[in-house]
Design a protein around this nucleic acid. Structure first.
Lengths: 348, 348
DNA sequence: CTGTTAGCGCTTTCAG
DNA sequence: CTGAAAGCGCTAACAG
């Protein structure tokens, strides 16, 4: 009773295996009555086709690999939800692997997925991934790949994310519009493509408003682990506050960085936005309820996941006939709240 | 160059397929030099064993199925991280499926996973899952199953979660200790096992302190979708506030319910804890930074995931020889903050 | 309309 | 020490 196979049901019904197979797949070359008998027996005995066998035979696994930095991240899990929703609908299931911001791990994930026979890969590269040779090699193998979230201009492929330059530009410009001129940036290494793009957006906004770019105001967080990152953020913020002329506002260029900045500022007894205004990339639904309500650059996470998955499925099923690669940049939304309220405005 | 098989390498090295297979698995019956040649060629040509074939042959897939309500939930994703960490270490990979709180979906997930040949299943049942026949049937098939998070006393199996009764008891008792007597409960239907347990804990605490149980104070949220849930929470809270004698404190018995309650109370212009104290089940790292800082019943999510996965792997590998089922109930931690600060105490 | 056959890539007896 | 052969469960020609 363990697992029922086509042969079992063929034997029971005194048919051949292939007849049963075809009957189950509703082939035109099988008689109605036979189909019914087979279907009835299968249902009654809870027959489940063995997908490993089917996959092996057909050379298709019906699954899609997804590589992300960490599943324990609200922004990421929102994207995963989007990915899952379109994949499930299309009949694919997904195998999720975490690179934990390590290039070595990322390669291991990719190998696993390839060995598993996934039909395509959705990947948001690790923070250590500064070149894309391993992905290029995989792509040359014929594996459909779509980059999402952490997109890169160095790598030719389909990509879905946001316009990082523009998002960072808008956030910085918003601070400027609200009267801040000494604006710090907390971000990741410029080796990380999306971080470099956000850095540019920040710099461009300053430039456009004739505000000098001060290297001391641009802080690069290298740490990745949960605790290490927390400590690093705190150290950077303390360093900013200790500057002879400290900044009046901070733009945190990452989801994690934003919430950790808020925490660190609290811990250091810093008034927001009185002592330091704050805006960050963040998708937390709790932004409204934070102290103070946190201004955020909101990314359409679910939609990014959906679109990336749709694109990948087009590639897999060969619906995509276009010769060129395409990068979809979804618009961000600026959710302005108290943490970046205009300078010198009376507190409500 | 697409995918290299054992046959390809056998042909290239003028060996037989079985020799190559054995060489790669370092069999004692293969000569050292042959092994080296094979290994070298395999590495040089980026040979990856086809896991579908291996799985089919061995009847083992090397994968574990995980069913959760929704991946887009910080508590869940934390547990998933725990699961993934132990599974990856043990060489299993995981296939995650969402039931979206629907029993029908849950069954579909289970079928999928079974067909995929997973070697065991970790499941946190949907809110609609009030009986466990489908799980029992699957278990009788020989499929190792471990319930996590949403554990049930109706279903005999290995389970890992928290002591819901005790957690709810402690939370309620804390409110009582802080001077609140009119305490409302916002929870899910008692048909949901863990919700029933929390309800009991709440009731027991009241009873032990000779506080009457008022049905009007116990609100059951039926909705599940993101928006529907939000609306439902708001409606319930409004109803509570509109009572002739409204409650002074609220205990929200779920992660989602807690944050939505906070949001709703804000929206309705209610002071916390002045007009209504609040404590909730929640794992958000942002609790400290909410307005006001939110008192929470903190569950060791990562550890729940880890333990459940460890147990499952023991079952799969047959290390578990104990005849009886076991339910591990991890202790919760009460993180007390301002939202449930003592009644009549001066605001800081 | 139904059955026979071959084979997906791999592991595993069983012979050489 | 190496190879030939069978078979995991399924599908897809190709025959009947």
């Amino acid at each position: 009773m363990a697992t029922m196979t086509l042969r079992d049901i063929a034997k029971a019904l005194d048919l051949s295996v292939s007849t049963v197979s075809k009957a189950l797949r509703d082939s035109y070359e099988i008689g109605e009555d036979t189909k019914k008998r087979v279907a009835a027996y299968a249902r009654a005995n809870h027959y489940l086709p063995n997908r490993m066998a089917k996959s092996l035979k057909e050379g298709k696994s019906g699954s899609i690999g997804v590589v992300i930095c960490s599943i324990d991240n609200s922004f990421v899990s929102r994207m995963l939800d989007g990915i899952d929703s379109t994949c499930t609908q299309a009949g694919y299931d997904i195998i999720i692997m975490q690179n934990k911001e390590s290039l070595a791990q990322e390669k291991a994930c990719l190998n696993q997925l390839e060995a598993r026979g996934v039909e395509g890969i959705l990947i948001s590269p690790s923070a250590e991934t500064v070149n894309f040779e391993h992905l290029a090699a995989l792509k040359d193998t014929g594996m459909p790949i779509v980059l999402f979230d952490r997109i890169s201009e160095q790598f030719e492929s389909y990509q879905v994310g946001i316009d990082n330059r523009r998002g960072a530009f808008q956030a910085t410009q918003h601070l400027i519009a609200n009267g801040y001129r000494r604006i710090a940036l907390l971000t990741l290494s410029p080796d990380v493509p999306f971080a470099a793009q956000r850095r540019e957006g920040y710099a461009n906004a300053l430039k456009q408003h004739h505000i000098p770019y001060r290297p001391a105001f641009v802080r690069t967080v290298q740490a990745h682990g949960r605790e290490a990152l927390k400590d690093s953020v705190r150290a950077h913020i303390r360093a900013l506050l200790d500057l002879p002329e400290p900044p009046e506002a901070l733009f945190a260029a990452t989801d994690q960085l934003s919430t950790q900045s808020l925490a660190a500022l609290h811990q250091l007894g810093c008034q927001i936005p009185g002592d330091m205004a704050l805006i960050g990339f963040s998708n937390t639904e709790l932004a409204d309820m934070l102290t103070p309500p946190l201004s955020t650059v909101y990314q359409p996470a679910f939609q990014i996941g959906q679109l990336a998955a749709e694109k990948l499925i087009e590639l897999i099923t060969g619906k995509d006939r276009s010769p060129d690669y395409e990068t979809v940049r979804l618009p961000i939304r600026l959710d302005l709240r108290d943490s970046s309220r205009p300078r010198f405005q009376a507190t409500v």
